[in-house]
């Protein structure tokens, strides 16, 4: 099932590559073309790697470097798409609330399908692995919503591919960054970057002080999440390095409150970092902001305010 989902994505990426090829935008065509191959052949490559063949993985690794070079040096910004158009206004007035329906179908159907998959035996019947339920549900919802959108707007399927290619070009490299960051997370894990940071932090804390230990834990979660882009990567490092031995072991803190509130300190870091690309960089591209850090600029005061409130809660309840 999941293979079909990735093939569908390859089709959309291929359409964008084709559009840019025809417009003689070579770098963009190469960028989307490389991704098309990674999506269409991805599962075959993973299978070959399991069989001990290393060359395909190395080729993908080289492709990833090529993607970064194309993004940095080959792709110039395209003109904005958010311009006024009298045709669209007329169409909006004619179709009215019917336009909302397919857009709302995507989330509603995804949620409904995810809930349906909770029925015992449902996933086994369709051959969907449990961890892939959300992705398959999203893809199915998108296909059904696409049919609805074609009916509501009366557009031809080719128009859907063209609209998709236009939006992909608006998003540009931002759409690939989350996958690249996940790959960086793996490299950091394989080279023990987290352990090195934890060792450095431990040498810097006065362990006798409850407040200093708590500050180190909360700030550690914040800073480590900013570096890694993900609170999930930060938690095991800080919990093993500071929470367990110092706060719980020595100062008798409440583990449940300390764990939950510590994780939330990390979430404040997620709001502050370009490394959390799908929350902070992708939307800046989607909303066609000139400043790629515009979303972070809009949310940093909230992040700091919540971090302080969260720290106070930890001080009051976790360290009773």
């Amino acid at each position: 099932m999941i293979e079909a989902v990735y093939l569908l994505a390859a089709l959309l990426l291929g359409a964008a590559a084709w559009r840019n090829l025809r417009a003689r935008r070579w770098a963009r065509a190469a960028f989307w073309g490389l991704l098309t191959v990674a999506f269409a052949a991805g599962d075959a490559i993973q299978a070959a790697a399991k069989a001990g063949e290393r060359l395909p993985h190395q080729a993908v690794g080289a492709g990833v470097i090529a993607l970064a070079l194309l993004a940095a040096f080959g792709m110039r910004a395209l003109p904005a798409t958010q311009t006024a158009d009298p045709g669209r206004a007329a169409s909006a007035a004619r179709l009215g609330h019917r336009l909302f329906m397919p857009a709302l179908l995507i989330p509603a159907l995804t949620a409904a399908l995810v809930l349906l998959a909770k029925i015992p035996g449902a996933t086994a019947l369709l051959g969907v692995a449990r961890e892939q339920v959300t992705l398959v549900a999203l893809a199915t919802a998108c296909l059904l919503a696409l049919i609805a959108a074609l009916r509501v707007t009366g557009a031809r399927p080719a128009a859907a591919l063209a609209a998709n290619a236009r939006l992909l070009d608006t998003l540009g490299w931002a759409v690939v960054l989350p996958a690249l960051l996940a790959a960086l997370g793996n490299v950091f894990a394989a080279t023990h970057v987290g352990d090195a940071i934890a060792a450095l932090t431990q040498t810097a804390i006065p362990v006798e002080s409850r407040l200093a230990s708590l500050v180190a834990y909360a700030l550690g979660m914040l800073v480590f999440t900013i570096i890694m882009g993900n609170a999930f990567a930060a938690f095991p490092v800080l919990a093993a390095g500071i929470a367990l031995p110092l706060l719980i072991g020595r100062h008798g803190a409440d583990p449940a409150a300390l764990g939950a509130l510590g994780m939330l300190s990390g979430y404040c870091g997620t709001l502050l970092t370009p490394m959390a690309a799908n929350f902070n960089i992708v939307p800046a591209a989607l909303l066609e902001l000139r400043d790629p850090y515009g979303v972070i600029r809009a949310q940093w005061p909230t992040a700091l305010g919540v971090f302080l409130a969260n720290f106070l809660l930890m001080w009051l309840f976790a360290l009773r």
């Binding site: 992705l135 998108c142 690939v176």
Partner: peptide, 17 residues
């Protein structure tokens, strides 16, 4: 990256206003 599956629908609806 599978978020791109929503783009054809969003794009079509945007073009229709």
């Amino acid at each position: 990256l599978l978020v791109i599956l929503t783009l054809p629908i969003v794009g079509l609806l945007e073009e229709a206003g």
